[in-house]
Every structure is written in C-alpha cells, then in structure tokens.
Design a protein around this nucleic acid. Structure first.
Lengths: 213, 213
DNA sequence: TTCAGCTATGTTGCATGCAATATAGCCGAG
DNA sequence: CTCGGCTATATTGCATGCAACATAGCTGAA
C-alpha cells in the first residue's frame, strides 16, 4: 500500500485506523463535516475516503443519512469465516505449490516470532495486528493478485472485535503453532499440508469465537 | 440492486452499462468532464461513480491521470476463473443444502430456457447477459450475503470479453446442460452434485477461453 | 538529427456554497 | 394520554470555481 500523498488518501488511512484501533466503535456515526474539521480538510476528500471504506466493508453509508461504522452480527461472523475457510487454504496451497524465496519465508517466521513475543507480553492489540499481517502476507504470497482485494472486506474482523482478548493461553499457543506449521508446510512445498493446516486454523478460530458469545 | 435515485447512482449505472455492453472498450479513457457533460451532471457525482466502478474492478483510476476501463490480461483471466472455481461451487452447494423454494427454482429454470432460446437465435450478447444473471442468482441463493459483493469484481469478465461468440454449438449446448444440471442438483438437495457440476462448468469455460487465445 | 529542458494546456484534486432530504421535536386533534 | 402531521434543523448531495499536477509539444543546444 503506497503512502497517501493526496488528501483523500490521508483521510482514508486516518479513518481506517480509527476504526481498526477502536477509537471509532461499531455503530458510531462518521459525520463528513466533523471529520473534515478534525482532519483539517474539506468535506470532499473525506467523502471520497468514506466511499472507499464503504467499498472495503468497514463503514456503511445510507443515502442522505451519512456513514456509520459497521456493526458485525454473529451471522456476519459465520459468513466471514466460511469464506476465509474457503479462500485462505487455497492461498496457502498456492504459496506452497509456487514456492517462496528465502527472504519471504524468513519474513513469515519473523512475524511468527514477533506474534509469540507480543503474546508473552499480553499485548493483545499487537497480537491482533501481527496476526493480520501474517495472514495478509500469506494471501499476497498466493500469487493471485485479486485475492488480497477480495479478502480485505473480511480480514478486519479480528481487529475490530478484540478476538484475541478472549483466547486462553492454550488456544493462543495452538494458534501460533498453526502459523508455524503453515510456514513449515510451505517450506516443504506441500500444498495439501499447507491448506489443511490453514483450514484447521480458521475452524479453530471460528469455534473459539462462537463458544464465548 | 435498488434503482438509483441519486445522480451518482444514475452515473454509476450508465457508465457500468457502457462498459458492459462494449460502448466503452477496455483501455478507453473516462474523462470526468466529458462524462459529466454527456450525462447532464456535474463532475462530482461522476467522480463518485468512477470511484465505485474502480472498487468493482471495472475501471482503474491513476492519481491525477483519470480513469480508464480496465484491460484484462490472460493472467487476469486465469486468476478470475480460479477464484470462481473456488467460490461458485461453494455457492451451489450451499443453495442445495439450504434448499430453494419453488418460485426460486422456477426462476432459475426460466433463465435456463431464456438462455437456450437466445442461443438458438444466435443472440450472443443476450446469452452473455442471461448467463451472468443465472450465476448471480445462484450466488444470491447461497445465503451468504457477502458472496455477491466478493464476486462482482470477477463476474464481469464474460460480459466484457465476448466469450460466448467463440463457443461452437456443442460447447454451448454443454454449457446450457451444466446450468440445467445444477438446478436439478439443487432441486434434489444434493450439495456434492451441485458443487461438482458447477466446478465442471467453470473448468470447461476456462478451457474454452484458453484454447482460442 | 536527437535529446534535454521548458512551457502551454488539459485534466484531476480540493474547497466552498447552495439545494434537497431525513430526522427530531413540537403541536394539535382525537 | 396517545398518535398523526407539521415545521425546524442538521446533514448529505450536488454544482461550481480555483489550484495542483501530469503530459504533450515546442524550443534550442549539442
């Protein structure tokens, strides 16, 4: 993602971060004038940013009623995890089949290590961020240039809901183990293994989400 | 899709149709001022429409350089059909598992009949349109409300490239047969069957596209 | 002749002002 | 006391004007 030089890009990034880190909670209104004043811009670029966020599925705009941060229901959650269970194993398999260079594999392992370290520090916000980066990296590694765009709309869920806060240590450890195992499967160039682990990983996450809600 | 009452919606629909029916060819520039004058609007709603079309993957906007109709490469085609092969069988299976009411099944069969009739008349543009409507109806029937949005970006391909013009009668007949068979599988409430036929359908289409290009 | 640099032009990007619309609160009838 | 309708207000939607940027064409030197 290129850093936004245009005003609309900075508005997009800023509001996006506000939603992802929780300063704009689900259901909150996002007034154009209010945001414009806060950001020191006019309403035009803010409006464009809100449109793009709506396309990403982060906000919803109602005609003549403005934009709101989307509030996820549990059916949304189910739908999202079903689609991820479909697409991410495919991405992992593709990555394993095509193969990754040493630098990419090292980057993935570094992400694993950083996530584990953040988990030790109980910094769950950081865990969520790094987890998303890991999955995004894998999706990029699939080689299908359309996949990242397709999944943006469903990749925000764990960031917005503080999913990882509810993970007990054992579940968390298993999740990290899955990440490590996916990287090993890709290193071994075994698509079936990679897809299988990723499927388990997402099913486990969905189950954890379901049980405490 | 609700009919657009706002100016931005009419601009969106109009330009979208221009792209889908070929009056705006891949690679063509889409100037804001020019479109605004043509549509009798100002640049603001046109600009919003172009943003939305870019989110749909129908146009690409380059900073300070305006919007162009996307030109698909053959790798794009491969990527698109891989994703469709992943998602549409899932949609068909879901529809079969959940089950459709009589009205929905009749609507699907009517679409099949209309497509066959258009094929007899050699009206390939109409075939393309009806084919898209069939697939869209199936995706809607999956019950996953996020699937339609996810697939919009990849569902335009057969419309933009005049895919069906190249189909010989036998291939065309097989394609229609697949459609009929999917509906039968859903009627029989057999998810595996439905998914399998849909997979065959898309693989066959991809093969046909590949061979004459 | 060729190419670097500059300028002219057309386009997008942004700001602002006005019109249109939805909502909240109030008023009055039942 | 409750509910239907109206009005006031705040917000979005759209139009227009100006500024910023990218590109094409020209000029001039090597």
């Amino acid at each position: 993602m290129s850093v936004g030089r245009r005003a609309a890009d900075t508005a997009y990034e800023t509001v996006r971060q506000m939603i992802l880190d929780g300063s704009a909670a689900p259901g909150d209104r996002l007034g154009e004038s209010e945001l414009a004043e806060t950001l020191g811009l006019s309403r035009t670029p803010v409006r464009e940013a809100l449109q793009r966020l709506a396309a990403d599925g982060l906000v919803e705009v109602l005609p003549h009623r403005g934009a709101r941060v989307v509030a996820w229901t549990d059916t949304d959650l189910t739908e999202i995890f079903e689609l991820r269970t479909l697409l991410e194993p495919y991405a992992a398999a593709r990555a394993a089949r095509v193969g990754l260079d040493a630098a990419a594999l090292t980057a993935l392992r570094d992400l694993c290590a950083a996530t584990e370290e953040a988990a030790d520090r109980k910094d769950m916000a950081e865990v969520a961020r790094l987890n998303s980066r890991f999955h995004a990296a894998l999706i990029d590694a699939s080689g299908n240039s359309r996949l990242p765009g397709m999944l943006t709309s469903v990749m925000h869920a764990p960031l917005i809901l503080g999913t990882f806060h509810r993970y007990d240590p054992a579940t968390m450890a298993r999740s990290m183990g899955h990440h490590r195992e996916v990287v090993d499967a890709i290193t071994a160039r075994d698509p079936e293994w990679a897809a299988s682990v990723m499927r388990s990983h997402l099913r486990a996450a969905a189950a954890t989400l379901k049980e405490d809600q």
